[in-house]
Amino acid sequence: MAELIKIYEENPNAKDIAKVVSVLKKGGLIIYPTDTVYGLGCDITNNSALEKIAKIKGVKLDKANFSFICEDLSNLSEYAKQIDNSTFKILKRNLPGPYTFILPGSNNLPSVFKKKKTVGIRVPDNSICQAIVNKLGNPIVSTSIKDEDEVIEYTTDPELILEKWDKLVDLVIDGGYGDNVASTVVDLTTDTPEIIREGKGDIDL
């Protein structure tokens, strides 16, 4: 059964963050708040945890379009190929924020993603996930948690999330009510930026 842990975004408790990181390092799955919808995540370096998320989502891992949640842009060169100045300026202007940027993947991608030519990078404007990634020391792989409800696409109440995901994940973070609008997805792999999905936030391209 999953554990529910309350963490306040204004001042994330270091002990609680350490507990979350411990779960991730052991290959556990967490559900956590972002600056948009709640996400399902695991440690990017843990292949068995990545397999679990792919299975839950019903996709093959090497074809999965998961986002990499980073604390800031310092991880960028690890996972994305050399990016030009104008692309970097777009990232700098909009991050942290409710955006997923698709970039050309580098050769340093974790082995399970080696076949992928692109990578989705997220730097959410949320101090809880920033603190988790900081303490973990590397990005977490993430995907939004969808709801079967036809009216509400994303569950926003952490207690309802716990009820639904209780047997699938190890820990649910209650960071308050989430949003029900996902991130805006922008493709930066060509010369002209292209908005793939309109979501939260006004993008400055």
Score class of each variant (00 low, 15 high):
residue 4 L to S: 01
residue 6 K to F: 09
residue 7 I to E: 03
residue 8 Y to K: 07
residue 9 E to P: 01
residue 9 E to G: 02
residue 11 N to T: 09
residue 13 N to W: 03
residue 14 A to R: 13
residue 18 A to N: 14
residue 18 A to R: 13
residue 19 K to R: 15
residue 21 V to Q: 07
residue 25 K to L: 11
residue 25 K to F: 13
residue 28 G to D: 10
residue 30 I to M: 13
residue 30 I to S: 03
residue 33 P to E: 05
residue 33 P to Q: 11
residue 33 P to C: 14
residue 34 T to S: 13
residue 36 T to E: 03
residue 36 T to W: 05
residue 41 G to P: 03
residue 41 G to D: 05
residue 42 C to W: 05
residue 42 C to I: 11
residue 43 D to L: 04
residue 44 I to N: 04
residue 44 I to W: 08
residue 46 N to Q: 03
residue 46 N to D: 15
residue 48 S to C: 06
residue 48 S to N: 15
residue 51 E to A: 06
residue 53 I to D: 04
residue 58 G to F: 13
residue 58 G to M: 12
residue 59 V to A: 07
residue 64 A to Q: 11
residue 64 A to M: 15
residue 64 A to D: 07
residue 66 F to Q: 07
residue 68 F to T: 04
residue 69 I to M: 11
residue 70 C to W: 13
residue 72 D to A: 14
residue 77 S to M: 13
residue 80 A to T: 06
residue 80 A to R: 04
residue 83 I to V: 14
residue 84 D to L: 10
residue 85 N to P: 01
residue 91 L to I: 08
residue 91 L to M: 08
residue 98 P to I: 09
residue 98 P to N: 12
residue 99 Y to T: 02
residue 101 F to I: 00
residue 101 F to D: 01
residue 103 L to C: 10
residue 108 N to W: 01
residue 109 L to C: 07
residue 110 P to M: 11
residue 111 S to D: 12
residue 111 S to M: 12
residue 112 V to E: 13
residue 112 V to M: 10
residue 113 F to Q: 05
residue 113 F to W: 09
residue 114 K to S: 12
residue 117 K to N: 15
residue 118 T to M: 08
residue 118 T to R: 04
residue 123 V to F: 07
residue 124 P to V: 11
residue 128 I to D: 01
residue 128 I to Y: 11
residue 131 A to W: 08
residue 138 N to I: 03
residue 142 S to H: 09
residue 143 T to C: 13
residue 147 D to F: 06
residue 148 E to F: 12
residue 152 I to V: 08
residue 154 Y to H: 05
residue 154 Y to D: 02
residue 155 T to P: 11
residue 158 P to D: 07
residue 159 E to F: 09
residue 159 E to N: 14
residue 160 L to W: 00
residue 166 D to Q: 11
residue 166 D to N: 09
residue 170 D to Y: 03
residue 171 L to M: 13
residue 173 I to N: 03
residue 174 D to Q: 00
residue 180 N to T: 00
residue 181 V to M: 08
residue 184 T to Q: 00
residue 191 D to Q: 02
residue 192 T to M: 13
residue 193 P to R: 01
residue 196 I to L: 07
residue 203 I to T: 05
residue 203 I to M: 10
